Every structure is written in structure tokens, then in C-alpha cells.
Simulated assay, not measured.
Amino acid sequence: MSSTELPAALATTVTPRVGTVRVAEGERLRSVGLPGITLTVRSRPPAREGLPPALYVHGLGGSSQNWSALMLLLDGLVDSEALDLPGFGDSPPPDDGNYSVTGHARAVIRYLDAAERGPVHLFGNSLGGAVATRVAAVRPDLVETLTLISPALPEIRAQRTAWPTALLSVPGVARLFTRLTKDWNAEQRVRGVMALCYGDPGMVTPEGFRDAVEEMERRLALPYFWDAMARSSRGLVNAYTLGGQHGLWRQAERVLAPTLLVYGGRDQLVAYRMARRAARAFRDSRLLSLPDAGHVAMMEYPETVASAFRELLAETGELTSPAGTDAGS
């Protein structure tokens, strides 16, 4: 179903929700009300009718804006939508305060069921990669292909650079960090985030940096910003400790969809060494290694990621039309 056509169950809940949130040329935002959650959805009008749907899920502290560059490159190939997970971007917190990986996965599933868009080409980065893995494992009917960029799957020995993010999960730490950094301005915070997430922060354009600072200022003004960060971080750490059929690696083994894995050699949050384990765990996987990329390859090297996704579609027989063949090239 095209993102411009909505089921009756959603049509009455859709209202403009742009505000001060950045919307790239050709994009639009809408707010979708579902039981217990309200989700902001970023989309691009499909280049033509009949394109297969795609859904993008961001990482911890991110938003649907993280996918804008890739969505643009995939115009003509898929009908793109990106979610702001509950409590992030422009989506308010969930009514039940559930920021677990399962809670976020339930929000994605709830949206796909209500929008009648499945099966979709599902993308996930970092926390969104863990969420997308869970969705693909428990609802294979909703996922056509799976593309995971630095997915946050359990590591026995996490990199030291990832420890501060994990520490946010400890009760009281977010509040303490807020007090200790109360004099930091948005520009300082953005520089820190980019140094952590990019293989080469110098790749960020001045315009991109200004946009990020503006978005950081907006988010810091939200009363639930740090609570959403802390609870989602805690939810991710808790997911790492689950065993049996609910463990993320066990669920990765259950994924039936053809899977593209993207790992960065300079990733400071998800260890590059995990790429081989992931390639073994997902039964129908192919691996794209980017030695110079950090944690957000879809923002650092969107053309390369788009090309790899196009190859995935060609390999799985999903790329059938002449218009789609040239998309993203």
C-alpha cells in the first residue's frame, strides 16, 4: 500500500505534526495514533505506483531523520517510511512507559498491522537493528527483507567506548549526567555524539552540523528526553541478558527473510568483530564491511548502502522493473 493511501483505521488519526522538526525537501511528517502510542512517521511520496513498502527504524537517541539520505537514494525502488520510536524524534512517550526492545518492536508491529503495509523491506540501525531483528523473528509475515546497520546485538566484551551508553541504563545515572553536563551547550553535545558515531566526523557538512545542533536544542527542551534515553538503554541491556528463545541471537537464527548486514570498521559502539558472528547467525545473510565507517553507515556512506540494498533485491528477485534497476545508482 502506498504511504499516500491509508486504511480507514488510521485515516482519522493522521494530522500534520511538523512544528520545528526538520523535514527535508520531498518529505512529510504525519502523526499516527494507535492504542497506547502515538508515532510520528516520516515519508516520501512514492516515485510511482506499485513500489514495495520499506520501513526504517532508528537507533538509541536517533530519529527518523537519520534515514533521510538513504530514503532519497532509494526513491523509485521502494515506498519509504521511517518511524520515530516512542519517546524519540517527534513521537511522545508510550502510555505504559515501556521502552524495552520488545516494547519498541511491539510499536513497529502495531503500526505495520494498522497501516496494512506488510510485508516490508525492514531497515534497522543500532537499537533499531535489535528491534528489527525481533520483529522479523516473531512476525516473519511482516518482513520481506531485513537490512541491519550496526545492529545492537549482545556482545560479551563490549568496547570501552560503548560503556557510557550502557551506564545510562543504571538508575540515577541519567539524572547525574544531566547535572554534571548542565553547562554544555547543544553544539558541544552534538560534537561529542558525532565523534562517537561517525568514523570521520569531518564528513559532516556545515549544514548537517547546524541541523543536528538545532535538533539537539529541540530535544533537550523535551521533559522526557533523558528518561527515554535511560529507559531505552536499560531495555537494551536487559535484552542482552535474556536467554532461550527470547535471546536476540536465538531470534536472529529464526529470521527467515534475506538479510543484509552492514558493519563499520571504525564503529565505537558495536564491535566490528561481531560482523562474522552475525553473518553466521542469520541464515540467509550477506555482509557489507565498510572499513572507514562508524556506527551510522547509512548517514556516512548512503550511496554504498543503497547500492548493496539494490543488489539484495536483485539477488532475491525483488528487483524486477526497469525503473527500479536504476534507482539509487
Rank of each mutant, 00 (worst) to 15 (best):
G103K: 05
T15I: 11
T133R: 02
P45G: 05
P206F: 07
Y111Q: 09
E311S: 10
L70K: 08
P171F: 03
F123Q: 06
S329R: 15
L34G: 13
A257D: 03
A137K: 06
R276C: 02
E27H: 15
V143S: 08
E311M: 10
G19S: 11
R44Y: 09
A306E: 10
D211F: 09
P119K: 09
G294I: 01
A115D: 05
E303N: 07
S329A: 15
Y56M: 13
R280G: 12
V18G: 12
L236Y: 00
H295P: 02
F177N: 06
P45E: 12
G328H: 13
W226F: 14
L39M: 06
V23K: 02
R254K: 12
L261A: 02
A293Q: 03
R28K: 08
R277V: 01
A297L: 06
F209K: 05
P92A: 03
S64M: 10
H295C: 03
G265S: 08
F209Q: 09
L29A: 09
P151W: 14
R179T: 13
M71Y: 07
F282L: 04
P154M: 11
A230E: 05
E25M: 03
E303R: 15
A228V: 02
G192S: 01
R191F: 01
E27W: 12
K182Q: 09
G328S: 13
D113A: 14
A239F: 05
E5D: 14
L51T: 04
A186Q: 01
P322G: 07
E25P: 03
G202T: 15
L55E: 05
G235I: 01
E187F: 01
R17M: 09
V255G: 07
D95P: 01
A136Q: 02
V270L: 01
E81R: 11
